[in-house]
């Protein structure tokens, strides 16, 4: 019998192989995929997120958990599609034009993927035009922008304007993050949300899509 508590532990402790093993066993036993996800996997991610916020877990722990979650989700997704289930949402993410900082944006992308979002990672030095094109092509729910320089963060406003000019602002939420930013800046440029770390970005994405 599949040890679903073990799946929760595997996600919490970032054990990919164990997560995959238990997930396969659970499927073989005919356990409902949504029950596996909501009853155990999501709870594991919620717990590691809570530990991170409390300073009891660190970025590498979050990433390991997200990797284990994604590994198990990849197995379950085809089954979910058969049941007409959808992802948590589609997110287009990139570091804005003029900025080549990759890692913070990739941490956020990994966490979002681990938490069930479809993520289209556009990389670095991304123009407003590219953000708009990708948002249209993938029917994105959220555009997520990163900047690490005071000289590049202002380009985010241009992306917001490009999204408005393209006529899709009412269809897509905009989230921003990066070391020199704060919530006041996000609101001033017309974004919908700001997050200061990868864990918070997941919570913000969920909040924006449930609003």
């Amino acid at each position: 019998m599949a040890n679903l508590e073990g799946l929760y532990e595997a996600i919490l402790n970032g054990k990919l192989e164990q997560a995959v093993e238990v997930t396969n066993a659970a499927i073989a036993e005919g356990i409902d995929p949504q029950t596996i996800i909501n009853g155990y996997m999501v709870k594991g991610m919620e717990e590691i997120g809570a530990r991170f916020e409390a300073g009891k877990a660190f970025v590498p722990n979050l990433l390991m958990s997200a990797r284990a979650m994604k590994g198990a989700l990849d197995i379950l997704k085809p089954l979910l599609k058969a049941e007409n289930a959808t992802s948590a949402g589609t997110i287009v993410i990139g570091t804005v034009k003029g900025d080549l900082h990759d890692i913070g944006k990739n941490l956020v992308a990994s966490m979002l993927e681990g938490c069930g979002f479809e993520v289209i990672n556009l990389g670095v030095d991304v123009s407003g035009e590219k953000f708009v094109e990708a948002a249209k092509e993938h029917n994105a729910d959220i555009i997520c922008m990163s900047a690490l320089l005071t000289t590049t963060m202002n380009y985010m406003k241009e992306v917001v304007s490009a999204v408005e000019a393209a006529g899709i602002r009412d269809k897509v939420k905009i989230m921003v993050g990066g070391a020199p930013l704060n919530n006041d800046f996000a609101m001033a440029i017309g974004a919908d949300g700001y997050s200061s770390n990868a864990n918070d970005a997941v919570a913000m994405a969920r909040r924006l899509l449930s609003a």
Binding site: P60, L63, M64, D102, I103, N106, L107, A109, S110
Partner: peptide, 18 residues
């Protein structure tokens, strides 16, 4: 080396290197 790690999608090692 960092670019290669980022390209490979190994975000954990990329984070350590960064």
């Amino acid at each position: 080396y960092c670019r290669e790690l980022n390209r490979s999608g190994d975000v954990i090692r990329a984070f350590f290197a960064d």
